Amino acid sequence: MDKLCCVTAIYPGSFDPLTNGHVSIVRRGLKLFQTVVVAVARDSGKTPLFTLDERVAMIREVFKGEPRVQVDSFTGLLVDYVARRGAGAVLRGMRAVSDFEYEFQLALMNRRLHRDIETVFLMTDYKWMYISSSIIKEAARHGGNIQGLIPNALVPEVYKKFAELERQRQENPGPP
């Protein structure tokens, strides 16, 4: 019998902000792995609402009572980070069929780059299938109720960030 893949999985993403769907994937990942590292990508190609340090701090706050969850940030190739951490798996969540093609391509490329790293896909819980950080930010930007979609501790942080951005916009209006 081959040895087990690993005891540690890396769950990468931008987590801007962390959603209840992300939390669900982490908690379910703990049923499969001894440790789950939530790895916040510095170079995600997205323009984040929160700084890298703010995202890391918020995720640590959400999981502060769970010693098997670690929070870190990384830059560069994910498989290089996974190898540096001594992990053997990448944990990915999928909401719908539309996620599959992109995630499948990433998994194949990661496998090509580092044959010893496995990708484990978990389908999100049905109640989070329509949730994404982008949709949550758009709702919050316009004053929509995001309670119950992200961890309760993060709700005021999201509204506060949008209020700060609006204040900055009013203080420094751009060209007409």
Rank of each mutant, 00 (worst) to 15 (best):
V7E: 14
D72F: 04
R167I: 10
L52C: 06
D2L: 15
R55A: 03
K161N: 05
P175T: 12
G143H: 09
A39G: 07
L91N: 01
N172W: 11
Y81S: 01
D125T: 10
L18T: 02
R55I: 01
A57D: 11
G148A: 08
V36R: 01
F162C: 09
H22Q: 06
F33V: 03
T19E: 04
R68D: 10
G86W: 02
Q168T: 12
L77V: 07
V38Y: 02
A107F: 06
M123V: 14
Q105Y: 10
E157Q: 14
K127A: 13
E61W: 03
A140V: 09
F162E: 05
F74H: 04
F63T: 02
L18C: 05
S24M: 10
A89M: 02
D43F: 08
Y126V: 15
I131P: 00
V62N: 01
T75V: 15
V40E: 02
R60C: 11
G29T: 04
K64R: 15
V90E: 00
A140K: 04
M109P: 07
L78S: 00
L165C: 08
F121T: 06
L49M: 07
A83N: 10
D53F: 09
L52W: 02
A83L: 11
T47F: 12
Y159A: 06
G148V: 07
S98T: 15
R141I: 10
I10S: 00
G65C: 08
D99A: 04
G93E: 00
D72A: 13
L77S: 03
R84T: 10
I10M: 03
L77D: 04
S44L: 06
P48F: 05
K64V: 14
S24F: 13
E66W: 03
A87H: 00
E103C: 08
V7I: 14
N110W: 04
P156T: 05
T119F: 06
H114M: 13
G86Q: 05
F162K: 04
G21M: 05
R27P: 04
I25W: 04
L106Y: 09
A87F: 03
S44R: 07
A9Y: 00
L149G: 02
E164T: 14
